[in-house]
């Protein structure tokens, strides 16, 4: 469903993503993990057709996102890391805006579905307010509703649970698992390794733009010399904190 084939993106001499290849199969949750600046968001932007790869191909449901951009985007629902939404619209207006663009038929059925999602995410009471009055988490929730309103076959989520309250986060988790079970393909990036461990069917760890490990949790454990938790595997592969420097810093400070 999602295919990244030797995706590469250079910014002048800097290689943000380096020949990255992976596949996300239908009905699968794929977690893309990596330290800050490792190329996760750049990869997602290339998959969404927002950035042109310097090299390589990105396909959604068989459509090349650059050659058949609009066709490819029809399958996608996207929740960005920082939801920059139109400040001057209300949450309800924005979701309907998205619904109109995706040609979701207007009427009671659509309204009920929006209502249901808003209620599920505890954001219904604020849906008639201007987005500019929302907190980060509220804007994120509206972004999630907008991404789901056209029942996409592919969901791309960049740090979807960041800034969301525990109840909201749990709801999102259940919704995503439910969607996966109904056949939706989900690619998500997250820094919350516990979530990735519990939710993702397969995980890809990237560092400095390169895929350094990929597989199910069991496969990753094997690669990381038997480390048990995803956090340990992650730190083992990407490098842990520099304890000496931390100690030096704390020592100087205290």
């Amino acid at each position: 469903m999602i295919e990244a084939i030797a995706l590469t993106r250079k910014f002048s001499e800097f290689i943000a993503v380096d020949r990255l290849s992976f596949q996300v199969r239908p009905g699968e949750i794929y977690g893309l993990l990596g330290p800050n600046g490792s190329g996760k968001t750049t990869t997602m932007r290339m998959l969404l057709g927002l950035l042109k790869p310097t090299m390589g191909t990105a396909r959604i449901n068989g459509f090349d996102v650059l050659e058949n951009t609009v066709e490819a985007k029809r399958f996608i629902g996207f929740v960005p890391e920082e939801a920059v939404l139109p400040d001057r619209l209300t949450g309800w207006e924005y979701i309907n805006y998205v619904g109109d663009i995706w040609r979701v038929p207007r009427g009671s059925e659509r309204d009920e579905e929006i209502d249901e999602l808003l209620t599920l995410l505890d954001i219904k009471d604020a849906s008639d307010d201007l987005i500019e009055t929302y907190s980060k988490g509220m804007a994120r929730k509206i972004g999630i509703v907008a991404a789901l309103i056209h029942t996409p076959k592919v969901l791309i989520l960049d740090e979807v649970q960041a800034g969301i309250d525990p109840r909201g986060a749990a709801t999102i988790k259940e919704i995503l698992i439910g969607l996966r079970d109904r056949g939706t393909t989900i690619l998500m990036s997250t820094h919350v390794l516990e979530i990735a461990e519990r939710m993702c069917d397969r995980i890809g760890i990237i560092d400095k733009g390169k895929m350094i490990a990929e597989g199910t949790m069991a496969e990753l454990r094997l690669k990381a010399k038997g480390q048990q938790s995803l956090e340990d595997i992650f730190l083992d592969l990407t490098g842990g904190p520099d304890m000496q420097r931390i100690a030096a810093f704390l020592g100087e400070d205290s």
Partner: peptide
Amino acid sequence: SSRMEYLMTMPITL
């Protein structure tokens, strides 16, 4: 255009 990311991911041409 990064401020319009929400629009750019919609099925419309840039």
